[in-house]
Amino acid sequence: MSRIDESRDFIPVRIALLTVSDTRTEDDDRSGDLLADRIRAAGHELAHRAILPDERAAIADRLRAWCADEGVDVVISTGGTGLTGRDVTVEAHRDVYEKEIDAFGTVFTMISMDKIGTSAVQSRATGGVADGTYLFALPGSPSACRDAWDEILALQLDYRHRPCNFVEIFPRLSEHRRRK
């Protein structure tokens, strides 16, 4: 079963946070605020924060820029994961991914099922890796962001989490680029 191994040192990671919305501003970005607060409370660094409209190319460009930034280890976006015509965050993420973390969406759906029942099928939360950086697309609701952070990301972004976590494999995310 998963646990925190107190004999290991905590390693903070640098996280960029993107809110995708045609209507949100810095003054009313409740999901972004919730995630920023949780990122800092966990001991991680909030490397960047931005709000972009639901425009696939602009979202993908921002994700790529943050993946290329040596000061960013993880990118979390919130918003634009639904089923409506303007919801393009998942497609933008997949434009950038080198590898998708399929189980992230599955586990998020399992957690959501316990809270909102079959309405969980309307979420397209996703995760992936690009350029040695983890990327996660979360729904725009504060409750969904809370669930994803508290029940998945807070644990997987903690080096002390056992039996395994995302932090311990950071050095190996780009090993395919090394010369043989």
Rank of each mutant, 00 (worst) to 15 (best):
R3N: 13
E6G: 02
I11N: 02
V13Q: 04
R14D: 00
T19G: 02
S21D: 00
R24A: 10
D27K: 15
D29K: 03
G32D: 10
G32K: 10
D33K: 15
I39M: 01
A42F: 05
G43H: 04
H44L: 06
A47C: 00
R49T: 04
P53R: 15
P53C: 00
R56M: 07
A57E: 14
A57S: 11
A58H: 11
I59Q: 14
W66A: 06
W66K: 06
C67V: 03
C67H: 11
A68Q: 09
G71M: 05
V74D: 00
V75A: 01
V75N: 08
V75P: 01
I76M: 02
T78L: 12
G80D: 06
G82A: 11
R86I: 05
V88F: 10
E91P: 01
H93R: 12
D95P: 00
V96D: 07
V96S: 08
Y97R: 13
K99S: 11
I101L: 15
D102R: 14
D102Y: 11
F104S: 06
F104H: 14
G105C: 02
F108W: 03
M110W: 13
M113R: 06
I116S: 12
T118F: 15
Q122D: 01
Q122T: 12
T126Y: 09
G127A: 07
G127Q: 10
G127K: 03
L135F: 13
F136G: 01
L138M: 14
L138I: 14
R146V: 00
A148T: 08
A148V: 12
L153R: 10
A154V: 04
Q156Y: 05
L157F: 14
D158A: 01
C164I: 05
C164Q: 09
N165T: 06
V167R: 03
I169M: 02
F170K: 13
F170T: 04
P171F: 12
L173T: 04
E175A: 13
R179A: 15
K180A: 14
